[in-house]
Design a protein around this nucleic acid. Structure first.
Lengths: 200, 200
DNA sequence: CGCCTTCTGAAGCGATCGATTCAAAAGTGG
DNA sequence: CCACTTTTGAATCGATCGCTTCAGAAGGCG
């Protein structure tokens, strides 16, 4: 019913993924509650009827936009976790955060951080969704660092969970700084000093 | 006109500061846009007429609540900046952030971070206000660390702005982690390792 | 071509948004 | 006790919220 496409009928006049990317930018800039249906449909270039028929309601639209975020602006995470050493993983994660949150062609900051940090009743579910999203991010780093300990890349007394929390906290902080207009250069300089103490 | 109190007339039936503290909690939990006038007045225990007469509109109410936040939950900053050494300043700032953002009796996280990180048109002014609020926070730390360099507390080649950005980014990150439900203990452990690399 | 499915634009649903008005209630000072 | 000032509750403003409905336009398929 979802991915099923009947062969017949009038074909859709817009590209779904492109519409989702447009909606993503609105959610990124204005947050889940701050983005109105009028904002979203205008940016997508479609009517509310078309949106509800193909994407679902506002909440489902956000979930799909978040998936696009994972595949696009946030895709650097997968590549970073595949780096050969824990230090290079951490370096790539911070560099990726800085690049994504300060890109001039996109809203500054991180969708997963700023779209629903504090919400009213209407945004409670999306807030919980993003809490999970962020916690999942920490877990992936922790698991990667645990592997580094197992492989001898990190010293045996290193604490993978705490190191992961450190990197993840810096990522979240970078997102907030970027939303405040801090430049990529200043953030990168800070990230360099932050990793100078890395255990070896 | 503001602080002027005529001796005559029916006296106010509620305490202004207590009402502001109640409103503060609502803004803290739900954000500026997510908090409705109905939420706010219900929490304050007054009607909208009383609110508009004594506190002003929603935006002015938030500005006054933010002032209460500075004097209350965020007051640890002033004490931290008065610590005798840069390391102790940084330690106190992180410990204060963790304590305030994970206090069980208050909303988790930081008002200045989560109340208006991304907003629609209605919250644009408050978003700009909090951008200034956060940037001011960084500047105060930077000035304090510059003094530490001048006094020889920090080595001459230390970069006060970058160190301040480091501490301030950790504070912002801690606020996000707390909003995700991370415990004070785990954050404190992370903060301890984060400061192990402090220049000396 | 003509049936038939699907999509689209427009109108409008009830609810809630922030904000305002007004008359009655409540005290204070003379 | 009365006149005067201020507060308070209730009703209500137009605008916008997310969401739905519906008739007609549009194009694939036999």
């Amino acid at each position: 019913m979802e991915t099923r496409r009947r062969a017949t009928g009038r074909p859709r006049a817009f590209d779904v993924d492109e519409a989702l990317d447009r909606a993503l930018l609105v959610f990124w800039e204005q947050g889940f509650e701050g983005a109105s249906l009028a904002n979203l449909t205008e940016a997508m270039g479609i009517s509310t009827a078309s949106m509800y028929a193909t994407l679902g309601n506002k909440e489902q639209l956000f979930r799909k936009a978040l998936r696009r975020y994972d595949e696009g602006p946030s895709a650097y995470v997968v590549a970073a976790l595949a780096e050969p050493t824990a230090l290079r993983v951490a370096t790539a994660l911070l560099a990726g955060s800085i690049r994504t949150t300060t890109c001039p062609e996109q809203p500054h900051g991180c969708l997963g951080v700023q779209a629903a940090l504090a919400t009213g009743e209407a945004g409670r579910e999306i807030r919980a969704l993003l809490v999970d999203w962020r916690n999942k991010g920490h877990e992936r780093i922790r698991d990667r660092f645990q592997r580094a300990v197992d492989e001898g890349d990190l010293p045996p007394d290193a604490n993978p969970a705490s190191l992961a929390r450190y990197v993840h906290t810096l990522q979240a902080g970078i997102a907030v700084q970027a939303a405040s207009g801090v430049s990529a250069g200043e953030l990168q300089e800070m990230a360099d000093t932050a990793l100078r103490s890395w255990p070896h």
